[in-house]
């Protein structure tokens, strides 16, 4: 620790100034927003990533609110949000800037415009925009694993230094304010180690019943307790069926509760009949599996009922 401390104090003035001006309010800021309930671990991860100015990598089951997190952070901290959606064809370069050579060629041949100023053909990408903005932004890089394997590596330097160089115009852009970077991933591809080392990582677990109650309450503040309890109980017992290809997730539960409320279903019926399963179970195979299993049990109970 002594070594750590001495390098820490000697190596940069910046750091020292930072701790001197930093009081507890400078980090520990994200507390979840009104319509987003974050677990303690998640809040901690967000705050440590903000304090250390490192990108936060979020992973988790589909429907656990990875993308919503960025929206919530932006809302909670009152900052603008820039979303960079990654597709399989996205290149790292596009996030920084695009040099529109086709437009320039067109202008030079047919437009009669002055084309010697290349700057007018440089269009900043999402990452570039977040660097050049006058205020601090939240940047969401959504589904980074969709892109090519090399994609994260191509961003390493830019995310580290928060600056990039445009050779065409011989300009260097440096971030005025380091954006708060949130990256989501579905673990479709392994991310390179060098990239991971620079991130703060959080895995969003599937919420436990208590947290889930809170989440549902945020969406339906006037929900009756018995209805909520029954719905959650049924929902979690459905999630325990391992044979499902896709287990119902939070967003499906929210939909389901909405239908239950709209149809004013009584709580007793919920666990007995499990109405509106089509909002919970989305795969055909799961649906047929479930209806088979459930019908059989229903019949069995009817037979025993006659006894």
């Amino acid at each position: 620790m002594k070594g750590v401390e001495s390098t820490f104090f000697s190596n940069s003035k910046y750091n020292r100034r930072n701790i001197l001006i930093m009081n507890n309010d400078d980090f520990d800021r994200f507390k979840g927003s009104q319509d987003y309930v974050a677990s303690e671990a998640l809040r901690n991860a967000v705050n440590v990533s903000i304090a250390l100015a490192k990108p936060l990598l979020v992973r988790g089951e589909p429907g656990t609110g990875k993308t919503l997190l960025a929206h919530s952070i932006a809302k909670g901290l009152g900052k603008k949000l820039i979303i960079w959606n990654i597709k399989s064809t996205t290149k790292a370069q596009e996030g920084l800037y695009v040099y529109d050579t086709v437009q320039r060629l067109n202008d030079s041949r047919f437009g009669g415009k002055e084309v010697s100023d290349i700057r007018q053909y440089i269009k900043l990408g999402k990452l570039g925009q977040s660097f050049t903005s006058k205020e601090q932004l939240v940047l969401l890089i959504d589904e980074i694993d969709k892109a090519d394997l090399e994609f994260p590596n191509d961003l390493l330097n830019e995310l580290d230094e928060m600056s990039f160089y445009i050779p065409e115009t011989n300009e260097t852009f440096k971030a005025i304010h380091r954006p708060i970077v949130i990256i989501t991933s579905n673990a479709e591809k392994e991310l390179p180690d060098a990239f991971l080392r620079r991130c703060v990582f959080h895995y969003i677990e599937f919420p436990d019943p208590e947290l889930m109650e809170e989440i549902v309450h945020v969406h339906f503040p006037n929900l009756k307790d018995d209805l909520l309890k029954e719905a959650l109980r049924t929902f979690y017992s459905l999630r325990e069926i391992d044979q499902f290809r896709k287990k119902p997730s939070t967003s499906e539960l929210i939909d389901w509760v909405q239908v239950l409320v709209a149809s004013s279903t009584s709580p007793e019926i919920i666990s007995k009949e499990i109405p509106f399963t089509s909002t919970l179970i989305k795969k055909e195979a799961d649906h047929s599996f479930f209806s088979n299993l459930y019908m059989r049990r229903k019949q069995a109970s009817r037979v025993s009922g006659y006894d």
């Binding site: 401390e5 820490f8 701790i19 930093m22 507890n24 980090f27 440590v48 304090a51 250390l52």
Partner: peptide, 8 residues
């Protein structure tokens, strides 16, 4: 260590 020393 950085996080610790920043008092997060």
């Amino acid at each position: 260590m950085d996080a610790l020393s920043k008092g997060c």
